[in-house]
Design a protein around this nucleic acid. Structure first.
Lengths: 149, 149
DNA sequence: TGACTCATGTCAGCATTCTGACATACATTG
DNA sequence: CAATGTATGTCAGAATGCTGACATGAGTCA
């Protein structure tokens, strides 16, 4: 509530609002994924593999915004439980291309529907033009942040 | 890259882009806060207390988007290290109003400057109108997500 | 007043993610 | 060819956050 001129005013900070939105989205996703026994990262991994079969552990990590070490832990569990398969040896380099098993695909189907409903809810009240604007603005922020100082 | 009609297309998903932007912001903030020995939640707590002195543990937790249990751990450490003070007994109810010590304020000053530079960088390339739009759109998403299905 | 509901602080245990480190595979460059 | 730089998979340990649980204080309502 205060305004001392030197601090970051949270109520006017786009960064704070961005974190708030992201937090709300994460909570909503966890809510619908919990009944399926799936975490957000878990779902992200399966969704990435469905859209881009053959992604490596490191690529999946970047796509899910976690470290490759974290993704490795998850991938090993998914492999052990039969949702994902990886070849024993790398066809090239060290990267092991991962693929969904039929079981993984079935598991993803339910989760994907649940997540889609969250996204639909999030977009409620926004026009098509709004969504385009949101895309443009978020892309701009990502780009500026990635560019380094 | 694929388009099977049933899945969520990550390249066109506003939710995915929101997560990407939030991740980029978090990484950028961690980068500038690390030299100060401060985590994002740590900084958030101090910033909240600077702007709204007397916030309770639970209120700080909501403001920093963590559970009150997590904030409690942090708050106890901050209290132990002399960045924050809380009265021994609650003036009303069980809520203990926390306040920054001079040391806490000094520590925050550097962090706040660092974080401000990140936000400035994120906003580079956006017009004033863009920022207003971004506010409106993000607020709309938060509101829709909070409203429940 | 007594029963109920809700918010809070806090403890304990668990899950997830991160940082640090190492070996390996490929590309680039001298 | 040898040296270097970059990317990868993986192991180990530490940090961080979460869920579950309990007791306490305040408000509501019959």
């Amino acid at each position: 509530m205060s305004q001392d001129g030197t601090g970051v005013d949270l109520d006017r900070s786009l960064g704070y609002l961005l974190k708030e939105a992201s937090s709300a989205l994460r909570i909503a996703m966890e809510e619908v994924l919990r009944p399926l026994g799936m975490s957000v990262t878990h779902y992200s991994c399966l969704e990435l593999l469905a859209q881009r079969p053959g992604l490596s552990n490191s690529e999946l990590a970047r796509g899910a915004f976690v470290t490759r070490q974290s993704m490795n832990v998850l991938l090993q569990a998914l492999e052990r439980d039969g949702y994902v398969t990886r070849p024993a040896a790398a066809p090239v380099g060290k990267a092991l291309p991962a693929r969904l098993t039929p079981r993984g695909r079935r598991s993803l189907a339910k989760a994907s529907a649940a997540v889609r409903s969250v996204e639909v809810r999030m977009l409620a009240g926004m026009t098509e033009a709004d969504r385009s604007e949101a895309f443009r603005l978020l892309r701009s922020m990502v780009h500026s942040l990635r560019d380094g100082s």
